[in-house]
Design a binder for these strands. Structure first.
Length: 882
RNA sequence: GGGCGCAUAGCUCAGCUGGUUAGAGUGCUGCCCUCACAUGGCAGAGGUCGAAGGUUCAAGUCCUUCUGCGCCCACCA
């Protein structure tokens, strides 16, 4: 007995039932199966602090569409889920939490603080995982990983130690990006530059030997306290004679030299640069090459230290003001200009970063980049859209060493110990022990006075191992799984993290696995609001995906996101965009409801009698075949918006608008019902990767074999026996006829009961097809419908051309406004005439006939014939109007 | 300073290797609560495809320049 569906679609109830089932089902658990091909996606692990936003929603919907489609297509599909410990972000969250009790992390101490973070993670860290489940993500949940799991951590240690052993990790004093708020070093990628309106200060530095001075220009005057030279370009004639002279550094009253260096741009400012080796990367380079003193003037929190003399204790910006005032007082400030320039910011807390000299750990990147460059150049790893290749290559070719140590507590602690005894030696790296296991004693001197490095590793130093560490590498037992699932298939992510993550994963893949980590990188757009701003909680412009799920359902959210997300372009969102998804859900629901309520008991969808198919049946089955071909291809090309729009168009405008409407008139027939069920079932399968909830729900109510979920059903294949090419042409006549009749009906204000006579000049075959459906579809009743090959035209009738061989005449003597009809015809004839003329010109053009492909020329010739014929017939009708 | 992207209907966008009369969603107008659906149906209005050149038999599509947005990268202090 077919089950009934409730009259109104309520996504909430339906979806809650299914997401619960999917979250628990073992069906999404994958294991190596030699008889099947693997298709693997590793999730970009969201931060444990994460709460689902639109970017996540889009990213994970795309992955779920791909994984569900491939699973149905017979692949051993694995979607690896997990979360990232997100060092700085998570530490910040927990610090904020304990701050409410007036506590700092130092008050708790390292161990106690870390306990608190773990506790926080246990309580809140799975929020986003739960939200992904709610969206319908068909991950292999049993495999869920966390970047600080014991196993994962051993991968991080292994990688650190092995890179150190290969001399690809080193430690040293360099200028790094320092966030004074987070009080940690950051990599270059973590310190994005933003243009700011700043000021350029011109400051006089007096010469020691005379009353003259030279002028330097700077945006950060406070750093002058740490100046140990002034540099000019050696080719700069203005200053050549001053090279080697001594200046008196104002305020500090320290003697500094004028040096010459090619790094100085003659054209910028005055051509004289103050050199602060401890607070600027360029100056650092000059400091090294000219053997200058390195004067660090700041504490880690950017408060000036004792080296800043009387400014000690002031914050860097406070000091800037004070210094400017003091310079003014001494008439040493020449001028101040407005100056827009790029300033680095902490990507976590947006504080202006400080270039800061400190001892950090680095990865030597150049050697790692080589295979990563080759793989992409050769196309071994493909990017979609292609344009990101250039971005990737550009970064990779100019790669710089990676600062990986962080002065925070939450993260993978460096597997580095220092021997107190040996470190007294002056040798570089003396007493440094890099080890996979905690060492008991110093291998050099045997001392047990060892101290572990207090730094932790950059979060991305664990993320870059994600495609293989999630399988348990380096443990031996991970081998069979890695052999089967690695390299993974597709990585789906946003452009923002190409450098952070994608590029580094490729390098790690080659370095540690000897193989690429994935074959395809699909870069989707950034989700933005209506004004083009990146959506973020801090801007308060975000549309909450959970809100959309609540209101319209997860299917609606998924559908709309995919439909909007044209491959690669940024996505502008507004609430209304999700209504389309909701409306589509409702349409599917109601069409299904209609079919179900009419169903005979013996209908399964598998019992189509091919011998007695009507032309509309042939048409819809053929159309579905077309849809399957196109949708399958579109998914393979990552054109998911195209795929979902194809299904939408097919289901709504072909199946519902035409087939179901026509089918109403033979709804009692078994064969009609079989076709309805067959097409509905198969469309639900096609749609399932995009809208898993509603498709599974409806499928479960349809007759036929009972299965738990269609998530593992076979993907529809085009059925050759249902390809009826001729049906397209015939149905096309039907559509046009109905369209014409609807217009007649509207123009004449005819109701459903009005009886009209139709004369049709066409073949008998076409007539029967048109006749069968057009009266009801156009909401007209026909007293009389006659078919004729007779070209003579009845007087005073409405007429319309359907196709070359089909002409409809609506016999309505006395009802027609002759004058109006004449005008209408004249207009139509004129339009046709100009089109005809254009085509004729084209064909008279010898170059066109000679150079254009034959098919194009023939098509034009045929079109001209048709137009000529139509013109003739229309003119006849026009003459018959009296 | 380099690089990339976008500009098509009122709005948001599709439009693939150039080839019939440039499409969708939404909004708008008119008529319909017709027994799946008003979250719906039918019909309709609305476009010199950012500008100017060029290539071509043929350009929304390819090339050049320009304009206006947007993004990314970069050690001009």
């Amino acid at each position: 007995m077919p089950q009934e569906l409730p009259p109104k679609y309520t996504p909430k109830e339906v979806e809650e039932k299914w997401f619960d089932f999917w979250a628990k089902t073992p069906l999404f658990h994958s294991r190596p199966r030699p008889d099947k091909k693997p298709y693997t996606i590793v999730i970009p692990p969201p931060n444990v602090t994460g709460i689902l936003h639109m970017g996540h929603a889009l990213n994970n919907t795309i992955q779920d569409v791909l994984i569900r489609a491939k699973r149905m297509q017979g692949f051993e599909a694995l979607w690896m889920p997990g979360t990232d410990h997100a060092g700085i972000a998570t530490q910040n969250v927990v610090e904020r939490k304990i701050a409410k009790d007036g506590l700092k992390r130092q008050d708790l101490g390292r161990d106690e603080f870390l306990k608190t973070v773990w506790q926080w993670k246990e309580e809140h860290g799975s929020t986003i995982i739960h939200q992904l489940k709610r969206m319908g993500a068909s991950c292999d949940w049993a495999r869920e990983r966390f970047t600080m799991d014991a196993g994962y951590s051993s991968a991080v240690v292994e990688v650190f130690v092995s890179l150190y052993e290969k001399k690809l990790i080193y430690r040293g004093d360099y200028i790094i990006n320092w966030c004074p708020r987070c009080q940690t070093a950051l990599s270059d990628e973590e310190a994005p530059h933003r243009d700011l309106d700043g000021k350029l200060y011109y400051i006089k530095y007096p010469l020691k030997k005379s009353r003259e001075h030279i002028v330097v220009a700077t945006t950060r005057p406070e750093t002058m306290l740490g100046d140990t030279a002034v540099a000019v370009n050696p080719k700069d004639k203005r200053y050549k004679h001053l090279i080697g002279e001594t200046l008196i550094l104002p305020l500090m009253e320290r003697e500094i030299k004028i040096i010459a260096d090619d790094l100085v741009d003659k054209k910028f400012g005055t051509g004289c640069v103050k050199v602060t080796p401890a607070h600027d990367p360029n100056d650092y380079a000059m400091g090294k090459s000219h053997n200058l003193d390195f004067v660090n003037i700041m504490h880690p929190d950017a408060v000036l230290n004792a080296n800043a003399g009387e400014y000690a204790g002031m914050d860097r910006f406070e000091a800037r003001e004070a210094i400017i005032e003091d310079l003014k007082e001494r008439s040493l400030l020449l001028k101040v200009e407005e100056h827009r320039h790029a300033v680095g910011h902490c990507y976590r807390c947006h504080t202006i970063i400080e270039p800061y000299l400190s001892k950090q750990w680095f990865v030597k990147m150049k050697p790692l980049s080589k295979p990563a460059l080759e793989a992409v150049k050769k196309g071994e790893i493909k990017f979609t859209p292609k344009r990101w290749i250039k971005v990737y290559l550009n970064w990779m070719e100019n790669i710089r060493d990676w600062c990986i140590s962080r002065q925070i507590w939450w993260g993978h602690r460096l597997p580095v110990w220092y021997c107190e005894e040996c470190s007294k030696s002056t040798q570089p790296d003396a007493g440094v022990i890099v080890s996979r296991t905690t060492p008991e004693r110093c291998p050099q001197c045997g001392s047990s006075d060892l101290k572990q490095d207090s730094d932790v590793l950059d979060t991305w130093f664990s993320s870059w191992l994600w495609p293989f560490a999630t399988f348990g590498w380096p443990a031996a037992k991970s081998k069979s799984e890695l052999d089967y699932f690695y390299p993974t298939s597709t990585l789906v992510t946003a452009p923002e993290i190409i450098f952070f993550w994608v590029a580094r994963m490729i390098m790690a893949g080659f370095e540690f696995m000897g193989k690429k980590p994935f074959s395809d990188v699909y870069i989707h757009g950034t989700v933005r609001d209506e004004e083009g701003k990146k959506m973020s909680k801090s801007l308060g412009n975000s549309i909450d995906p959970l809100e959309i799920i609540e209101q319209y359902g997860a299917d609606a959210l998924r559908f709309s996101l995919i439909a909007i997300a044209a491959s690669g372009s940024d996505i502008y969102l507004s609430q209304e965009r999700f209504e389309q998804g909701r409306n589509f859900s409702n349409k599917i629901w109601n069409a299904s409801r209609f079919i179900l309520t009419n169903l005979r008991e013996d209908v399964t969808g598998d019992g189509i009698d091919r011998e007695s198919l009507k032309v509309q049946d042939e048409w819809i089955l053929s159309s579905f075949n077309e849809a399957v071909r196109k949708v399958t291809k579109a998914i393979d090309l990552f054109k998911l918006n195209e795929a979902v729009n194809l299904i939408y168009e097919f289901f709504w405008h072909q199946f519902c608008d035409w087939y179901v409407e026509i089918a109403k008139h033979s709804i009692a027939e078994k064969n009609t019902q079989e076709v309805l069920v067959r097409v509905l079932k198969d469309t639900l399968l096609l749609l399932h990767p995009f809208m898993p909830f509603i498709t599974d729900e409806i499928s479960s109510k349809l007759p036929g074999e009972k299965i738990e979920t269609i998530a593992c059903s076979a993907w529809p294949k085009p059925k050759k026996e249902f390809d009826h090419k001729a049906a397209f042409a015939t149905m096309d006549l039907v559509f046009k006829s109905v369209f014409v009749l609807r217009n007649f009906r509207k123009d004449l204000n005819l109701g459903p009961q009005d009886l009209v006579s139709i004369k049709m000049a066409t073949t008998a075959q076409n007539k029967s097809a048109i006749e069968a459906v057009s009266s009801t579809m156009s909401n007209l009743a026909f007293a009389k419908i006659s078919v004729s090959t007779d070209k003579t035209v009845a007087p005073n009738c409405l007429s319309a051309l359907i196709a070359k061989d089909v002409h409809l005449y609506l016999l309505l003597e006395g009802l027609v406004d002759i004058q109006k009809e004449k005008e209408r015809l004249d207009k139509e004839i004129a339009a046709m005439g100009s089109q005809l003329k254009q085509k004729k010109n084209m064909l008279e053009n010898k170059d066109f006939v000679k150079k254009a492909p034959e098919a194009v020329v023939n098509r034009e010739r045929q079109r001209v014939d048709e137009l000529k014929d139509s013109m003739k017939r229309l003119k006849e009708v026009r003459r018959a109007l009296k």
